[in-house]
């Protein structure tokens, strides 16, 4: 079936079977491999993307459900110069990255949080990350990076 939606701010249309997930659609049909598959049952958040302003696990979304929606993946998170945006830069500065496999999902979770709550407490950041598993970092530097991003965006408002 033909699935039309907005992907990283571009209108796209793709012919795909109706029984695949949004995760498979992104990875296999658009070659957007920044979105990772960690568990396929919605537990780990490695496949998290922003769909119509909400954080979703793309392994739990059927591809046809994306029709007419606006989807942002990690490949759509960039600074004005096409390099890392401020959140991604803070992930580097604060040492939030180790093996890196969870990081695209973490950054999507951070961006989704700041869309709705531009000035979160550390506890609110932790709650927003509760659906994203990281086995390397113990989360602390990820919270640091998101907190620093929120502070600097608030300051620039």
């Amino acid at each position: 079936m033909l699935i039309e939606f907005t992907l990283n701010r571009k209108r796209v249309a793709v012919e795909a079977p109706p029984d695949i997930t949004l995760l498979t659609l992104l990875r296999d049909y658009f070659n957007l491999t920044g979105t990772k598959e960690g568990c396929s049952v919605g537990e780990c958040g490695a496949c998290a993307v922003i769909m119509d302003g909400r954080l979703v696990n793309s392994c739990l979304v059927l591809a046809p459900q994306a029709a007419g929606s606006e989807v942002i993946t990690i490949e759509g998170i960039r600074g004005p110069d096409g390099g890392p945006n401020d959140m991604q830069e803070n992930f580097i500065t604060y040492g939030a990255v180790q093996c890196g496999i969870c990081i695209p999902g973490m950054i999507m979770a951070g961006e989704a949080l700041l869309m709705h709550n531009p000035n979160p407490t550390r506890a609110e950041i932790r709650t927003a990350l509760a659906g994203n598993l990281c086995r390397c970092t113990g989360y602390q530097q990820i919270v640091d990076a998101i907190e620093a991003t929120a502070r600097s965006r608030e300051g620039n408002r």
Binding site: T33, Q88, I92, V97, P104
Partner: peptide
């Protein structure tokens, strides 16, 4: 800066 952090935060690793 961790040497492999950039490609990981961009999702290009």
């Amino acid at each position: 800066r961790r040497v492999d952090a950039l490609e990981k935060v961009l999702g290009t690793a």
